[in-house]
Write a protein that binds this DNA or RNA. Structure first.
Lengths: 249, 249
DNA sequence: TTACAATTTGCAATATTCTGCAAATTTAAT
DNA sequence: ATTAAATTTGCAGAATATTGCAAATTGTAA
């Protein structure tokens, strides 16, 4: 089999699938994984696809570009996203924090919902492309390559210009006394700016993040209007939060 | 058997299949593999097929799904992008206008080049993800869904904060007296802001855009430092531009 | 951190292509 | 028809490319 035949097969796969795997191609083409890897590298050099760990994805950035590179499809986040959807109403201005759980919400958003979405996340902005009635305002700033969010003073100043109805805060650690905390210094700064520009703050949190804390402080717990978790909302342990006036969902 | 007969047979095969093997042709045509190889080389020189190790493939391979997503990959723009690359030097701050030709440049950028890229285009920012040494600053603003660029006052103000070395202006119409013009009102505003923030302005223009004008004014022609076209730079008609002090490439 | 998976790198075995040359064939002019 | 020049063909050895393997490195997830 010619090298070019393999090329054609690989590219064809990518025309149909959003991702091809080294192992799969290796058996399909009957060559070693090393060869597939080298093929992918060559095609990537020609700009015909993008090499990623374990395989390759189509190169052209489009609405589906980011989706397939993120592993957000676990059940907990699905539950959280579904719960969150009911709080987004026509005409609202919503701040979307970066992260995979907010991405899921963006993806599940009804197509006829009229919203103004303000975000610093490429993936979220991309996902909203097909939502005709969603106006997207994007925060400028320095682009973090791996997570595709903008950060820095420019992003912060951008958010400060608005007065949003809701801020959807991606998964952080929440501790009744230590407050809301995150794993990244600069992203935390941006989150704080988003929170300050919003009337209500809805935090998304999987059960195991409740009662924990991370290195960088974001805001006091009582600033949250609502915490959406994957757990049943009659949970005993939730009392500390409801006592602070936070709605648990 | 005549050489021309062999040529016919080889090309015929390639009309039906996506590939031909040296070995097959050698037995089919009853000549040595060397002869087939030389035949293929000759046909390749005429651009009738593409010679590859072990055989040959059609020059512009069949109905490729992936080719659809590269609809900007036409030869003119390829030429322009290649020419443009040489003017980007280590350490520079470069403004990238949106559009497919600037995208091509981003795609062809050497991986080891150190740049600061400032842009309002999602696709360009995405393409630069894998360039470790390229810092991307993204302009915030209202997101235009179809073209994935940000526009509006926020984007304009963002660009105004910088003093870049080079501004790469995507394909516009250029007219010696009427100046540089574009087809979209709001995008033209942003382009103007980019131009004002840059020391040098390099315009990319396919031959047929030279001497034409569109609805929205961007800047006077003499503000350009250089025009990169797909044409040979000793063109007679270029004199009007060189007289304005613009370098034609 | 640790453990594990993926990637990179160097290398040897194999396959393909290139090069020069001589024999065979074709071409063109007498 | 004959000859000489040019072209084409096949072949052998050198140069180059591809492939798979294994060790070293890097990246990722728990």
């Amino acid at each position: 089999m010619l090298k070019e035949e393999r090329f054609q097969i690989i590219l064809n796969q990518l025309g149909h699938e959003q991702k091809v795997y080294l192992g799969h191609l290796s058996t399909l083409l009957n060559v070693s994984e090393d060869t597939v890897r080298r093929d992918i590298k060559e095609l990537a050099d020609q700009g015909l696809l993008k090499s990623v760990r374990g395989g390759a994805v189509p190169h052209s950035p489009g609405p589906h570009h980011f989706r397939d590179r993120m592993k957000y499809d676990n059940e907990q986040k699905q539950i959280i996203a579904t719960k969150a959807l009911q709080f987004l109403k026509d005409g609202q201005v919503v701040l979307f924090d970066g992260g995979t759980s907010t991405m899921l919400i963006a993806q599940m958003l009804p197509k006829d919902l009229r919203l103004t979405v303000i975000t610093n996340s490429f993936p979220i902005a991309s996902l909203l492309e097909e939502h005709e009635h969603v106006e997207v305002l994007f925060a400028g700033g320095r682009l973090l390559k791996n997570s595709f969010v903008t950060i820095g003073n420019d992003a912060i100043q951008f958010f400060k210009k608005f007065r949003a109805d809701i801020c959807l805060l991606g998964i952080c650690s929440i501790h009744a006394e230590l407050g809301v905390t995150g794993p990244d210094f600069e992203e935390s700064d941006v989150k704080r700016a988003m929170i300050e520009s919003s009337r209500e703050v809805i935090a998304l949190a999987t059960g195991e993040k409740l009662g924990t804390a991370e290195a960088y402080y974001v805001c006091p717990t009582e600033r949250l209007s609502m915490i959406i978790t994957d757990q049943a909302n009659d949970n005993e342990a939730f009392k500390i939060y409801t006592d602070l006036g936070i709605r648990m969902v």
